[in-house]
Design a protein around this nucleic acid. Structure first.
Lengths: 342, 342
DNA sequence: TTGTAGGCGTTATCAC
DNA sequence: GTGATAACGCCTACAA
């Protein structure tokens, strides 16, 4: 069966293509009831499916959304094995499909741009997760379509931001540890970049100390990449060189998992020897043994909200009232923290 | 800056649009060296980006590939939190981008079809992972574009299959356990469907017994869904009701992880009390404690190969010589198996 | 070698 | 209410 076009439908129904177009686009009131029926019949009968390329050519609406997630440096493969990203993509996809859009998933090569893609495909909008270098955002600002930045503190004309209160999250985690009697609390984290989420969590970490009238120890801040592997390294380091540390706050669950492993390798156990709080509440955190106490954010919801936010901007170019959408946070207590009395 | 079209370039270069089109499509020999230069300059100068919608409209090539992965029943969200799928998507995306294609990622609602999407977007091809109900494949067969089925034993006119030797995998795992002195070996697995990968692995499990002159015990086959949750259940069940079982072969790592947890909940430890072999070698298997002994397949490679296979069919509608592409398997020995002497 | 013109499937503006 | 018809951006015979 070859492709059925609007003309075929017109012929079948014995009307003009314009009429078809009307009913296809919900302007059924421009058509008499009789022809409406004929047209609908013909559409079903011929199993007509509109061609989006043609559509997007004329009215510049592709119903296509670009989704960008980070990738590995070496092989430029998507960081989908990071549960955080895979979950957020799930959320985005389900909502998008629900709303009649399709999603083009991709990474962005360092140095390359995203402008090409958006123009080539006539993207209606884009959702960006992860942190990139400055020039990337500069380029993004030149693009005229609405863009939602997830977990970024960067502002721009066509940007919409959605995220959590990272500082509060850092505060909650650290506070909890302090309340459980800990005072020598390490921070293990990805690079603390200006205006990055990590910086905010770090701020929260510090203010929890302040609030308790204590001082945080800069020596206890371990900063590198946000990855399981770095967590392992940090865990080993702590076990070897900082035996006095009784607790650590890891700014992501992936790191936390690594810390557990690193600690364990050298005979230190969580939570018996060291308590641990993570961040994100990715699915493995519930699976891992011990189960991770962590600051939970609803990642899937984040994806869904990002879509709603974006489509709102696209469909009803609304008077962008909101500054930034903030999602809730919750401390989930599981097995990785032990109360101590010194 | 408004969109630059081929006409703008033509004007800028002082030639006709046809000439532009020629050089854009690699038919530079149809154009004199002088104009070639002028055109190239103009393209760069104007920062011209071709519009794929227009292109695909005329030559029916969208440079768009559909990628389908399974989703949850309830919320119809992608099973991207299953590391197997997220990894394979990574592989697919990187190779696709490399080759100048974009990917539309989506799930398929039960009952709904995929034909619409392929027609709407003029997809050049599709890659399908996961198992679906019969009607879905029937519909797929009607689509005239090349389709790569990953890990499926279903054949069809426009289908290309890529996978592993599942039976061999099941055999390797079970054989290993037998060699380590085990004989009461349970199988924990997703539903054993006719022609599914799981059935083949089950076959391998049985033939390993046969080869050793033993009989497998049907009571030791635990079959339900391929999920962490079911693994937990099965683990509990084994710990409670089948204390004689000393080893289990789980047909996926996700299940295996669940089994460990379920066992552990009831005081049984891996590998001290029960040995365990998984399947897939997803990243967590190396992270989890104990590290999982498993049948490794290169998931990322699978995605990459799937793309190459597909594009070969698309670009050089080759005389489909290959029946099915089979990728290698390897037993990775880590910490979840203990040798016993009875 | 270069340019003109028709058409891909849709939408939208007009007259009728 | 309805139906031609001109775009949209690009490709490709076909002429020149």
């Amino acid at each position: 069966m070859k492709r059925q076009t609007i003309k075929d439908v017109a012929k079948e129904a014995g009307v003009s293509t314009a009429a078809i177009s009307y009913v296809l686009n919900g302007k059924e009131w421009k058509v008499s009831p009789t022809t409406l029926v004929k047209i609908k019949d013909a559409i079903i009968h011929l199993n007509y499916i509109p061609n989006f390329s043609a559509r997007s050519l004329v009215n510049k609406r592709s119903k296509l959304i670009g989704v960008v997630i980070p990738q590995t440096e070496e092989h430029s493969q998507l960081l989908l094995d990071n549960p955080f990203y895979s979950e957020i993509v799930s959320g985005i996809e389900s909502e998008l499909r629900h709303r009649g859009y399709h999603l083009i998933l991709s990474g962005v090569n360092k140095g390359e741009g995203y402008l090409d893609t958006t123009l080539q495909r006539d993207l209606d909008g884009a959702i960006i997760t992860g942190i990139y270098y400055e020039p990337f955002y500069e380029e993004l600002k030149k693009i005229k379509i609405p863009i939602v930045l997830i977990d970024s503190y960067i502002r721009g004309g066509n940007f919409k931001n959605i995220g959590i209160n990272d500082e509060l999250g850092g505060f909650m985690a650290t506070k909890h540890l302090i309340e459980q009697g800990h005072s020598k609390i390490a921070l293990v984290t990805g690079t603390i970049k200006k205006d990055g989420v990590v910086e905010k969590r770090f701020l929260g970490y510090k203010s929890a100390f302040e609030e308790s009238g204590m001082l945080y120890n800069p020596d206890y801040v371990f900063e590198d990449s946000v990855s399981y592997e770095y967590g392992v390294k940090a865990g080993r380091l702590i076990a070897q060189q900082y035996p006095e540390i009784t607790a650590v706050f890891a700014t992501s669950d992936m790191i936390a998992l690594g810390v557990i492993t690193g600690l364990q390798e050298l005979g230190k156990h969580v939570p018996d020897d060291v308590s641990l709080v993570g961040f994100d509440d990715i699915p493995i955190s519930r699976i891992f043994i011990p189960q991770l106490t962590t600051v939970r954010q609803d990642i899937k919801l984040k994806g869904i909200k990002a879509v709603q936010y974006l489509l709102q901007a696209i469909e009803e170019d609304a008077t962008d009232d909101m500054e930034k959408m903030i999602l809730p946070l919750e401390l989930i207590q599981r097995q990785s923290v032990r109360r101590i009395t010194s």
